[in-house]
């Protein structure tokens, strides 16, 4: 198996412009002509006249929809707006076309996935949206994403998510009326599966575990990596957090690992912790090994330092 250096040595000579070498300079006539043509041909791009860039701008565009949804339950309905774009509104989700993108506001994150699918179908998009419970730091983020497509036109366009309040301002999970938002290119054909994280209900197990030491999580800022189990358990107790365990079976540096179940009574206080995962509110799972290793099996070798993930 070759490493990065070997990759560079092998592939470097194939490069038309040598690795590390600069291409053309921006002061050349061609570069100037291109810049002019780009900026005069589209000084105010049509796309920029509507809110679309960045979540905040997008959020403003959604405020109307959000306010409407606050007072009235809009039955599933197809609405044509002035530009001929198609929208869909129901009590679970609003989907609005904005230029060459769609914006979906999830009004009921606990709704049946079929309700969302119906909304996307109504505007001609094949999107399977699953809204799943996640730990606080991952709410509003995509947990999993898959797209099957044959010949699309996804020029530099991407899927973005975030959370907005009724006024369209950015907000965080748990702050009152904060809703999930999904923005995606209006591209016909293909199928997309998105798992979007929502705030978990009390006691609800997270769909996929998050890092428990991240801001907003149960062990935020705690020192857990390469520490003794007894040490980490003490930190968890101080915060009133329950502990579960997973037995890490490392496959070697940069080769991954798997986790076997293990009951707490079999875990020694002198074992080593390599990761703390948020399992549900108030509970973390420590991934442990009996022996102390000289590296952290959960992280790539280039992503760790002294057994800790690099910041």
């Amino acid at each position: 198996m070759i490493n990065d250096d070997r990759t560079t040595t092998l592939l470097g000579p194939l490069a038309r412009v040598a690795p590390g070498a600069r291409g053309l300079d921006a002061s050349t006539p061609g570069a100037g002509e291109l810049l002019d043509s780009i900026m005069t041909a589209a000084p105010v791009p049509a796309a920029a006249r509507r809110p679309r860039y960045g979540l905040r701008r997008l959020a403003v565009g959604l405020a109307a929809a959000a306010v409407l949804a606050g007072g009235i339950v809009v039955g599933p309905s197809l609405l044509e707006d002035g530009g001929g774009a198609t929208s869909y509104a129901s009590s679970e989700i609003d989907v609005r076309r904005e230029g060459d993108e769609y914006v979906a506001l999830i009004k009921d994150p606990y709704a049946d996935a079929g309700k969302y699918q119906k909304a996307f179908e109504a505007v001609g998009m094949n999107v399977e949206l699953l809204v799943v419970p996640v730990s606080p730091s991952r709410a509003g983020k995509v947990v999993e994403f898959g797209r099957e497509t044959t010949g699309d036109h996804e020029n530099g366009r991407e899927w973005t998510t975030g959370m907005v309040d009724a006024q369209g301002r950015d907000c965080r999970a748990g702050q009152g009326d904060c809703r999930l938002l999904l923005r995606f290119p209006a591209i016909e054909g293909g199928k997309t599966v998105v798992k979007l994280g929502r705030e978990a209900r009390p006691g609800e197990t997270y769909d996929s575990p998050g890092r428990a030491v991240k801001e907003g999580e149960d062990l935020a800022g705690a020192d857990v990596y390469a520490r003794k189990v007894s040490d980490v358990v003490a930190q968890a107790r101080e915060r009133g957090v329950s502990v579960e365990y997973g037995l890490l079976i490392p496959h070697g540096p940069d080769k991954g690992y798997h986790v076997d179940p293990i009951t707490p009574d079999r875990v020694g206080g002198d074992w080593t912790v390599w990761e703390a995962e948020s399992v549900k509110d108030g509970t973390v799972r420590l991934l442990v090994t009996r022996e102390r290793l000289d590296y952290n099996p959960v992280y790539g070798m280039d992503l760790q330092e002294n057994g800790r993930p690099k910041p």
Binding site: R16, V17, G23, A26, A31
Partner: peptide, 17 residues
Amino acid sequence: EAVYRAAYPAITAYAAR
């Protein structure tokens, strides 16, 4: 324009490669 000037050499090299 600032980004254009700074990134032009890298992007032209990227495309040519």
